[in-house]
Design a protein around this nucleic acid. Structure first.
Lengths: 211, 211
DNA sequence: GTCTATAAAGCGATAGAC
DNA sequence: GTCTATCGCTTTATAGAC
C-alpha cells in the first residue's frame, strides 16, 4: 500500500493544513450548518479570504476535510503470530471498541450522518473507508481462523457482521447520543460476552468443550 | 397505559398541531440548523408570528417536536399466546427491523444525534423513550421465555443487548448513512441468522437438538 | 390569536490593495 | 497568497394593526 510521497497532488501548504485542521474541529463540534467560515478562519489563524483562495466554497472545504480524515490505512492488523480464536477475537474486539468510542470517530459519524441526505457520495466514501473497510479486515481475519480450524464458519462476512453487531450495541448508541456510559459494565466484559457468544455459535465439532 | 384525554396540559389547538407537524417534517428533513422558521411557517400554512405565539423560540419548537414524537406506548408486544423461542424472537426481530429502518425513525436518530451536544437532555429523553424502552420490552419477553424453559439465559438484559446488536448491524449503519441496501440479503434472512446465533448460545441443555 | 412588515444580526462569498 | 473591508442575502425574532 502506498503510504507517502504518492498521490500528493497538492503540496502540503502550511496554511492549507491549518485550515483543514481547523475545519475538522469546527465542523465536527458544531455540525455543517451551524459551523461558520468566520469561525474556521479564526481557529486556523487566517483570514476568511485565504480560505476561499484554497477552497471554492464551504461545501468544498467540508468535503476536503471529510475525505482527508477518511484516508487511513489498515486499522485491524492480523495477529503477528497465529493465536487461537478467543485471543484473536478479543484483541480485535477491544481495538474496535476503542475506535468506535473515540470522540473524533463519534463526531465523524454524527456529522456525516446528518449531512448524508445532501452529500450522498460523501456518506458513501466515509462508509467504504471506515465501517466497510474495517469489517472487511475483520472478515479476513475470521476467514483465516476458519482456515486453521479454530472456528467453524460458513460465511466469514456474516460472522464478522454478527461480531461487530454484538460489540456495537447500546454502548455505541449511547456514545453517539452523547450519553454517559453506565458504570457497572466494563469494556473488557462487554468484549468477552461478544466473543463467547460468537464462539458458541461457531465452535468446530472437534474442539467442543463447554465450560 | 393512558392513551388519550390524559396529560392534555394544552388544548390541542389546530394551528399548534399543524405547526408541530410541519416542524417535524422540516427539522427531520433538513436538520436543526439548516431548517428555517419561514420554511416551517409556510409548510404549516401559518405566519411566522403565529409560531412565536405558541413557542418561545426555534429551540423551543424543536424540543416540543422531538418530545411529542417520543410519546409512544409499547412497541414490542409480547406474543398473544405462548410460543416457542424461535418463533417469538423471529417476530420480535422482524418488528424491530421495521422500526429501525422506517424513514421517520432514521431521520429522528440523525437529527437527535446531530444535536446531542447542544441538547443533552433531549438526547436522553429520546434514548429512554426509544432504544432503551424497546430493549426493556425485549428483555422482558426473553425473561419470560427463560422462565418457561425455552431458553437458558443468565441475564435477560445482556441477551436482549446481543440480540438487538446482531440485528442492528451494517444494515442499520448503511440506512443511517442513506446508502442503498445490498440486494442479495433479505430482511428475513438477516433476522433468521440473528435468531439462530442467539439460540445456539442460549439453548437449554434438555432441548439440545442441532439441525 | 393571527396577520403584515420590519428590525437587528450573522451568514457565505468577493473586491481590491499589497 | 494573504490581508481588510464590504456586499447582498437569509436568518431569528418582534412591533403593531386587526
Amino acid at each position: 500500500m502506498p503510504k507517502s510521497t504518492v498521490c500528493s497532488r497538492r503540496k502540503p501548504s502550511a496554511k492549507r493544513e491549518a485550515i483543514l485542521d481547523a475545519a475538522g474541529e469546527v465542523f465536527l463540534e458544531q455540525g455543517y450548518a451551524a459551523a461558520s467560515m468566520d469561525n474556521v478562519a479564526a481557529r486556523a489563524g487566517v483570514s476568511k479570504a485565504t480560505i476561499y483562495a484554497h477552497f471554492t466554497s464551504k461545501d468544498d472545504l467540508f468535503r476536503a476535510m471529510v475525505r482527508r480524515r477518511c484516508e487511513q490505512g489498515e486499522v485491524f492488523a492480523p495477529p503477528s503470530r497465529p493465536a487461537d480464536a478467543r485471543a484473536t477475537l478479543t484483541a480485535l474486539g477491544r481495538r474496535l471498541m476503542d475506535l468506535l468510542l473515540s470522540p473524533e470517530g463519534l463526531a465523524m459519524y454524527r456529522v456525516v450522518m446528518a449531512e448524508s441526505a445532501r452529500q450522498p457520495d460523501l456518506a458513501r466514501a466515509f462508509y467504504e473507508s471506515g465501517p466497510a473497510a474495517g469489517k472487511e479486515q475483520i472478515a479476513a481475519i475470521i476467514a483465516d481462523l476458519a482456515r486453521r480450524g479454530e472456528m467453524a464458519v460458513a460465511d466469514p462476512w456474516v460472522a464478522a457482521d454478527l461480531f461487530v453487531g454484538m460489540l456495537r450495541t447500546d454502548l455505541f448508541m449511547r456514545a453517539l447520543l452523547g450519553l454517559p456510559q453506565p458504570e457497572g459494565r466494563s469494556l473488557d466484559g462487554h468484549v468477552a460476552t461478544a466473543v463467547e457468544t460468537l464462539m458458541r455459535a461457531h465452535t468446530p465439532p472437534e474442539k467442543e468443550d463447554r465450560p
